[in-house]
């Protein structure tokens, strides 16, 4: 029995993946709405929101880019800021390497494209239940694909709803709120706390730097100085995906 050329059993595995990631979907929708509304507020055309969300596919960096452009930053600074923020994805990619190793090449490259903080966290936690590589790749596709789809739809809805949402609602508050929700629950190691603290202090002390350079400098300094803080509570190799990736999923 096939639907759209795909075996029914594989649809089931894909659906299991989507169910596993579903608790994280409402947050992605609200965050997407905020990004779309931001695109609309700064006067970019509506298609820029789905374009950015389907190509960059990493919300924090997309917001950083819009903020940099808003301050007339040179293109290089906007791009570098985004790539520094997204450097964390290299860690998830390393964590996915052994999980994806048995997949065909085109699957590995496609699933890498769909990889987000949330899908990497859910995949690495659930993977032990999927020893068969064929079933596992459909499960991972179910975790990653629909989540990205929801993100793209949410940002598009944000541009459309942007003009309807009253200014007085101050929907921009979702930006710090979303990042507090992602960052704080999983912040458990001393180097992580130090990196966050140094970063905040730097951003505020350098607030008069142009082009959003305070954000870039804060992130880099937090990473650099945080690296020197000894990690007492965690042995280095304990976890491939950091606890900050998706704290919700760590909850019972």
């Amino acid at each position: 029995m096939r639907v759209l050329g795909i075996q029914r059993a594989q649809w089931r595995d894909l659906w299991a993946g989507t169910v596993a990631v579903s608790p994280l979907m409402p947050g992605a929708v609200v965050f997407g709405l905020a990004f779309g509304a931001l695109i609309q507020v700064v006067g970019l055309p509506w298609w820029m929101a789905p374009y950015a969300s389907s190509t960059v596919t990493a919300g924090a960096s997309q917001i950083a880019i819009v903020e940099a452009l808003r301050q007339n930053a040179p293109m290089a600074i906007a791009v570098i800021t985004a790539l520094v923020i997204n450097a964390r994805l290299a860690l998830y990619s390393a964590a996915m390497a052994p999980i994806f190793a048995a997949f065909p090449r085109r699957w590995r490259f496609a699933l890498a494209y769909l990889m987000t903080d949330q899908s990497a966290a859910v995949t690495s936690m659930e993977v032990d239940k999927w020893p068969d590589p064929v079933r596992r790749r459909w499960f991972v596709l179910g975790v990653s694909g629909p989540f990205v789809g929801i993100w793209i739809l949410g940002t598009t809805a944000g541009v459309i709803l942007g003009p309807v949402i009253p200014e007085s609602w101050q929907i921009g508050f979702i930006v710090p709120l979303m990042f507090i929700a992602v960052l704080v629950p999983g912040l458990r190691t001393w180097p992580g706390v130090a990196a966050a603290g140094i970063s905040i202090a730097t951003v505020l002390l350098l607030k008069d730097l142009p082009y959003g350079l305070n954000v870039l400098t804060g992130a880099l300094l937090g990473i650099a100085l945080g690296s020197f803080v000894p990690d007492r509570s965690h042995p280095v190799d304990e976890e491939a995906v950091p606890p900050g990736a998706a704290p919700e999923a760590h909850d019972p």
């Binding site: 923020i85 921009g172 990042f179 507090i180 990196a195 951003v203 804060g218 992130a219 937090g222 990473i223």
Partner: peptide, 19 residues
Amino acid sequence: RKALSLVAPAAMAAIIANS
């Protein structure tokens, strides 16, 4: 690995502070 694990807290804290 350790440096990469600090990217998320440092970058997110920067965005929180700025916004």
